[in-house]
Write a protein that binds this DNA or RNA. Structure first.
Lengths: 341, 341
DNA sequence: ATAACTTACGGTAGACGTAAGCATC
DNA sequence: GATGCTTACGTCTACCGTAAGTTAT
């Protein structure tokens, strides 16, 4: 058994059982892959792939289990490399974060900045993708950390932690009638044209549910993928906006309506790691900077699982599973900034 | 990175950082080991071992973590081989069980017999060792299953399950005065010379505690490592014996005193597996034969851990954590035997 | 002085790639 | 006929073992 053979099998399984494709992906010849796979099959005494003549169709029953074990073995070898890189003076480091627009644009910039100050030599790579893509990317080991609000909890190969909860708020242009009322009702808002997220996006369902629960129908004029677009059209007077409170900034040309943050159900922003993956220590620090209650040492142990490390105590688990409120977190950060100045 | 290098490092760490010894154990040259280790260290960019001139003294800080990861990586590769062997027609199979005298002599024979009937081609290897040695052996991957009453729960690298609970009972030669009393008291027993286990053995502390709790001092005449020896001397009239109830057999020349099984605190016989190890399916079946409530599929999932597999439900965990009584288990087995005949 | 690791060096197995062969689609 | 896996074959890397060199105990 050697490591290359395991890589060949994993890649072949991932690429839909096409040796040619796997060979391209691994920058080698398909002939070599074919041979090495057969050699390993011979050594194991088991066929991993179902072949029909000279075509590979899928995995045998033995192969299915084998691929699972192979994935874990290769994961441990990656863990070894990352662990070593963490101690290596030569390697300054890299951190790949896959996340959605909402996080990349609003909640992460200050974190990235603080991280860059703390680790000047680490190259941070931020990839803006969909929540599903972020999850897949971490699951395949292509990125270290995924941050998103949905779709991160499902996959069994992921470990996810709640970072903070937030709500949708209503924004209107300066001088809009709604800005003069205190704590507008859902009905008062529904009287205006609405601009908000696309139906398939970031908790749009929670917005719809709130209005439906009050027996109201919405006049949704414009839907967008992100709050920047929404705010732009709201500023031009095309309607009233409903966006994540995380998207409210100081320089906005639109005004958040006071009390509008209690109208909708909260969402939770989560961070997800590959289960069993050992990341470089700065990756855990990055998470800690983003959500201070996610202590590096605890996240590390929780995501590695019980093999080798001692399991978390009850106390430590409650520490990790608390979900602070975004506004509270933000106020704290602002206060610290103020104290520093 | 290749698998040999990982093996070399693991073996060197295990053998007290002696390359020569590691080379002997792996049937290769120490020069090769030296070179391969240095190559891997170069590739990782980290020194794994602390060297002083030309002597290896121990692990660096990076090395400690590296060895842990390497152990897991090699474990997964072993898992791959065992998984494959499970499907291979060529390999009939082997099962290595490390256990103590008490189990090897009394509780296991019928299980081994049943197992051999079910898997005629599997070579069962039973190794009689101390509980500590059994734990170590499983921990190092030298044997598949450990069965013992003590010292199996401690190590973090082990997963252990309760098989059944049993108590110590009092035995006396036929015609002994105690055999005529119903439910003899501790005081009545302490009046005679006692023959029982060595102090460092199988729950001897529970026996001592029972008498100490009643304010009695024992006249221990003879201590032995196993019940066979104890029973032999009891039969010769040298004293009254205290042995595990599992050691009572039909053909015994000594008689178990009725009611003596409630005098001492119960012990639990456990089975232990290496955490994260994937065993061949017949190994799980073997455990199931020994303790029917330890269902093969559940034990498999519980010992593999959460990486890759779905975690156990609450219900499944209670199923595994129940501890049947030995006598109940035995009566059930006897009843089945009777029904079959 | 000896035990023990490293370096040097030669032989060989095996990994890799090109090219040809041969099954499916 | 095109795609895609396997087999054949030559090249070359890199692993292994012997032996000499060097450094602590």
């Amino acid at each position: 058994v050697n490591v290359q053979q395991l890589r060949y099998i994993r890649e072949t399984a991932r690429r839909g059982f096409n040796l040619t494709e796997a060979a391209d992906a691994l920058h080698t010849s398909q002939s070599g892959i074919s041979k090495q796979i057969r050699l390993l099959e011979f050594e194991l005494g088991v066929e991993v792939f179902v072949r029909k003549g000279k075509r590979i169709l899928g995995l045998t029953r033995a192969g299915e289990g084998a691929v699972e074990v192979i994935e874990r073995a290769l994961l441990e070898i990656d863990n070894l490399k990352r662990h070593a890189a963490d101690y290596s003076v030569a390697d300054g480091g890299r951190l790949i974060v896959s996340t959605t627009h909402n996080q990349a644009r609003y909640t992460l910039p200050s974190v990235i900045e603080a991280f860059a100050r703390e680790f000047p030599t680490v190259q941070v790579e931020l990839r803006q993708v969909t929540a599903q893509q972020a999850a897949q990317s971490v699951l395949r080991g292509d990125s270290d950390v995924a941050i998103a609000t949905t779709a991160l909890a499902e996959a069994p190969g992921l470990v996810s932690f709640d970072c903070f909860s937030w709500r949708h708020v209503v924004v209107a242009p300066d001088g809009h009638p709604l800005t003069r009322t205190r704590a507008p009702s859902l009905a008062a808002i529904a009287a205006y044209p609405i601009i908000t997220y696309s139906p398939e996006f970031t908790g749009r369902s929670q917005i719809d549910a709130a209005f439906a629960g009050a027996g109201l129908t919405l006049d949704v004029r414009l839907t967008a993928m992100d709050a920047d677009v929404i705010k732009t059209y709201v500023a031009r007077g095309l309607g009233v906006g409903i966006v994540a409170e995380t998207a409210i900034e100081d320089g906005d040309y639109v005004k958040k309506l006071d009390g509008s943050d209690t109208l909708f159900a909260p969402s939770r922003t989560k961070v997800a790691l590959q289960r069993g993956a050992l990341l470089r220590s700065h990756a855990y620090r990055f998470i800690e900077l983003f959500a201070p209650h996610l202590r590096a040492s605890l996240v590390r142990r929780a995501s590695l699982g019980p093999v080798g490390a001692k399991p978390l105590t009850e106390e430590e688990r409650t520490l990790l599973s608390q979900t602070p409120d975004f506004t509270a977190l933000y106020r704290q950060a602002a206060a610290q900034k103020h104290a520093a100045a």
